[in-house]
């Protein structure tokens, strides 16, 4: 193809003329095409974070099917906002890129009561979730849905230093804790559903009761598949 003469007498190079021709034919410039493929490649690479993996996370009611939650959650943040006890919190980068900003629990100040107090036992987070990332199966109750399991770190627990602390035992709404002959608490795994009441009242990280090397409370809820 020959160059195209233009009004000031110069002749465009073949390549430039081809490009102009291309644009007129397809309506897409090469630059756009490159940018487009670049962007598509970036998105494909971003999709690959799925295979990086991450730590299992304790999920709010209705989020127990991890694959479903990750495939549907658009990070709209509605569950954090609606939670009447403010225990739903965003997952952080430390738990993996894919899980980042998806809902998990923060039991530092309160626990999940399945909205018994504010919504008659129908969890608001699952109710408002617009994409059904949190969605409860038929007949799911606080008792038969396992959010996680409470685990006691005996090195950090005051009761295991025979100080007589039994806050977690008193707080458990599901009779999932027992005391042994030394008044030390134990978790009854069959009854624990991971509501977080024990963790929310644990004083082991407070001034005067903290154990050396403690990085979290002595009783914490961990994902049940992580056990």
């Amino acid at each position: 193809m020959s160059g195209t003469p233009v009004d000031d007498g110069t002749v465009e190079t073949d390549a430039a003329a081809d490009q102009v021709e291309d644009e007129h034919r397809t309506g897409i410039s090469r630059r756009t095409l490159c940018a487009g493929f670049g962007a598509a490649a970036v998105l494909a690479g971003l999709g690959g974070v799925k295979y990086l993996g991450g730590a299992p996370v304790v999920r709010p009611p209705g989020g127990q099917d991890e694959d479903r939650l990750l495939s549907a959650c658009i990070r709209c943040q509605k569950c954090y906002e609606i939670c009447p006890r403010n225990v739903i919190a965003p997952t952080h980068i430390e738990d993996g890129i894919l899980a980042m900003r998806t809902p998990t629990f923060d039991f530092s100040a309160s626990y999940c009561d399945w909205c018994a107090e504010s919504n008659g036992g129908d969890p608001l987070c699952a109710q408002v979730c617009p994409t059904e990332a949190l969605s409860l199966p038929e007949g799911a109750t606080a008792e038969n849905t396992i959010l996680g399991k409470a685990v006691i770190n005996e090195d950090w627990c005051l009761a295991y230093r025979l100080m007589g602390c039994r806050f977690c035992y008193d707080a458990c709404p599901y009779e999932a804790m027992t005391l042994d002959e030394f008044n030390r608490p134990h978790v009854v795994e069959d009854k624990c559903n991971g509501c977080g009441a024990c963790e929310s009242v644990c004083v082991s990280l407070q001034n005067g009761s903290i154990s050396q090397g403690a990085t979290s409370r002595a009783i914490t809820v961990v994902p049940s598949e992580g056990l």
Partner: peptide, 15 residues
């Protein structure tokens, strides 16, 4: 790319 990667990788990638 956003819609395709959501379908391929099974999570809303662009979000």
């Amino acid at each position: 790319g956003a819609l395709l990667s959501a379908a391929v990788f099974g999570f809303p990638v662009f979000c």
